[in-house]
């Protein structure tokens, strides 16, 4: 689904060269729910921006759904973002002048759907997040949790292959955060791949898989952390280390662990 190989991202000014990501390697399979954690400035957001085709990268290879992203022009990138990726942001990023239905409709407009199809999808997406009755309301008339649900509905309306969530619960109280997390889990269960950047260890634990980024590199790679920890299998996870090929699970063990996690 998503494959990053030796990705590096360098921000360069006249005086300073900053390596936001270096030799970054990551494989995400279809249907996974991956939590990305790490200290501030470690490169989480840069990773998410590159994954979401919002930023380019300096070196490496990035394949998304089998498509080589390296040399895509702006139009192609926009099309992929529109059709395959859904974004959820910490600050919700709803357009304040548009009501809920119009906000959810925005990506569908760019996709070129006709009015009837847009209406159907908007209705369905808002029903999924429990806000269909308030589609004419403006974002300012909603609570933070509700706004985030609208943002999720907007991300879902285009039926993307995977969701990129950047601190989706960062601006919410614990109850709202839990609701949003449950919503994301349900979406994931329905088959959508989710990559979520978070600072919240509790939320991260609820993901199927945890990635920790330190200094622009994948540092800790714990497969199916929840299930593993429950069974005392997470010994390596206690000591962060750089990922090597040896650390990566084989397909067979991955399958076994998936089953364990599921049980």
């Amino acid at each position: 689904m998503l494959s990053m190989k030796n990705i590096s991202k360098v921000f360069q000014t006249d005086l300073v060269e900053t390596h936001a990501l270096r030799d970054f390697n990551l494989e995400v399979q279809e249907g996974e729910f991956v939590a990305v954690t790490g200290p501030s400035g470690s490169g989480k957001t840069t990773f998410l921006n590159i994954a979401g085709l919002l930023e380019g990268f300096t070196h490496g290879d990035y394949f998304l759904d089998g498509v080589n992203i390296s040399n895509l022009n702006d139009n192609k990138s926009a099309t992929i973002r529109n059709e395959k990726i859904g974004f959820i942001f910490q600050g919700f990023n709803l357009i304040p002048d548009l009501n809920l239905a119009e906000n959810v409709e925005v990506p569908l407009r760019y996709r070129g759907f006709n009015a009837a199809e847009r209406k159907r999808r908007v209705q369905h997406a808002l029903e999924q997040v429990g806000l269909a009755a308030r589609m004419k309301h403006l974002p300012s008339q909603l609570s933070g949790g509700q706004q985030q649900r609208v943002a999720i509905a907007r991300a879902l309306a285009g039926e993307p292959r995977f969701l990129l969530a950047d601190e989706p619960t960062g601006n919410l109280d614990s109850m709202m955060a839990r609701q949003v997390m449950e919503l994301l889990e349900n979406i994931n269960k329905a088959g959508t791949t989710i990559i979520m950047v978070t600072h919240d260890a509790e939320l991260a634990r609820r993901a199927q898989r945890n990635i920790q980024i330190v200094d622009g590199q994948v540092c800790d790679f714990t497969m199916y952390q929840g299930g593993a920890r429950q069974q005392g299998m997470g010994t390596k996870a206690d000591k962060p280390h750089l990922v090597t090929d040896a650390d990566k699970p084989s397909d067979e063990s991955e399958q076994a662990q998936t089953e364990q996690a599921a049980s």
Binding site: D74, A78, E83, F87, A155
Partner: peptide
């Protein structure tokens, strides 16, 4: 610019 950022993220091309 922030609104444009959102539009770009959810699928608008530069040309649009």
């Amino acid at each position: 610019a922030p609104e444009v950022g959102v539009r770009r993220a959810i699928g608008a091309s530069r040309a649009q």
